[in-house]
């Protein structure tokens, strides 16, 4: 899974999708995940990073993660040819 390469994310959590013209805001965790996706990290890598850094159980994070990925998909922020 990969975030579209032309998507810009700033330190304030502001995201701009130049293909659609939409802008978004996200919280620090969302920012972290998007940056990891941007750097082509795999789901496993992202999960272990978050579990190491934050107080959260694996099950709980997994549920939130898939929900977040679905939101990214809905707003067309992921590479279209990617399969999950």
């Amino acid at each position: 899974m990969k975030i579209k390469q032309n998507i810009a994310i700033s330190d304030s959590g502001f995201i701009f999708n130049p293909t659609t013209g939409d802008s978004f805001s996200t919280n620090p965790i969302g920012q972290e995940i998007i940056k990891l996706l941007h750097n082509s990290k795999t789901e496993d890598e992202i999960r272990s990073f978050i579990l190491e850094t934050y107080q959260i159980s694996r099950d709980h994070f997994e549920k939130d993660y898939y929900d977040f990925i679905n939101v990214l998909k809905k707003y067309k922020l992921l590479e279209e040819n990617e399969k999950d």
């Binding site: 939409d22 978004f24 805001s25 107080q55």
Partner: peptide
């Protein structure tokens, strides 16, 4: 470890 919070994304319109 840091305090966790669910990731959110909000469309700005």
């Amino acid at each position: 470890k840091l305090q966790y919070e669910r990731p959110v994304l909000q469309l700005l319109n």
